[in-house]
Each structure stands twice: as C-alpha cells, then as structure tokens.
C-alpha cells in the first residue's frame, strides 16, 4: 500500500467519523428542542446543533472536498454559521426577554407533564 493510499484511507476515516458524530449532535439537538419543557431551555438544545453539529459536518465535507475552491466555500459557510448563530440566538432570547416572557426556573420534574407547557407570551 502506497503512502497516497494510506492518506486516502485516513482522510475517508476522518470524514466518516466527523460526519457521523456531527449527525448525532444534530439529531440530539433536534430531539432536545422537541423534548425540553420551556422556550429558554429549548434554545440551548438548538445551540448544540448550530455549533458542534454543523461545524463537524462541514469539517467532514471539507475533508472529502476534491479541490481547494470547494473546501474554501465550505469553510466560508462554516465561518458564517459560526459568526451568525450566536447573534441570532441572542436576538431571539433578548426579544423574548424584553417582551416580558419569564423563564421557568423551577426544577422540572419528569413526573408532572403539566409543568411542561410554558406560559403564553404572545402579545
């Protein structure tokens, strides 16, 4: 086996690993958004997808990319997501806070599903 082949296999293995782990994070974030009881807590679950999940998948795709231009474009998308996602999350949280939506700070007990519904904050 030549060095180029070994490099090829290593690249594929890295790509597969990064994309699989990223997929796990994205799916976990999505289920978290479904399962968590309150708007402010759901925000954190969405953050899991936006940061590590997205970046890992983009990293895996960069490893697979054939030429420098594809890799550069993917890196640009990754940078853009990295810079805009916290701003968007903060904007949503800040808007909810300024609109008077109170975070539910009680200890969420799994026994009472009635606690799960958050208060209506729409005005």
């Amino acid at each position: 086996m030549s060095a180029a082949e070994i490099f090829q296999y290593a690249r594929d293995a890295f790509s597969i690993g990064a994309m699989a782990v990223g997929l796990v994070f994205v799916i976990a974030g999505a289920t978290g958004v479904m399962r968590l009881p309150d708007f402010y807590t759901r925000m954190h679950a969405a953050g899991v997808t936006d940061t590590l999940g997205a970046e890992l998948i983009i990293l895996g795709l960069i490893a697979q990319a054939g030429d420098w231009q594809t890799a550069a474009k993917l890196a640009l998308v990754g940078l853009l997501l990295f810079l805009t996602s916290p701003t968007a999350t903060h904007a949503i949280a800040n808007a909810a806070h300024r609109a008077g939506q109170k975070p539910d700070l009680s200890h969420f007990k799994p026994k009472h599903p009635a606690d799960a519904g958050s208060s209506e904050g729409q005005k």
């Binding site: 976990a28 289920t31 978290g32 309150d38 402010y40 899991v48 975070p103 200890h107 969420f108």
Partner: peptide
Amino acid sequence: NLAVLRLIMKPEIEVEP
C-alpha cells in the same frame, strides 16, 4: 456540548434552569 447532550438524551428530562 457533551454536557448538554448528556442532559437532553436522558430518558427523563431533569434540568434546573
């Protein structure tokens, strides 16, 4: 991320915001 993953993948959600 790993800490949040552990929290939200528990069979029963138990968090204290």
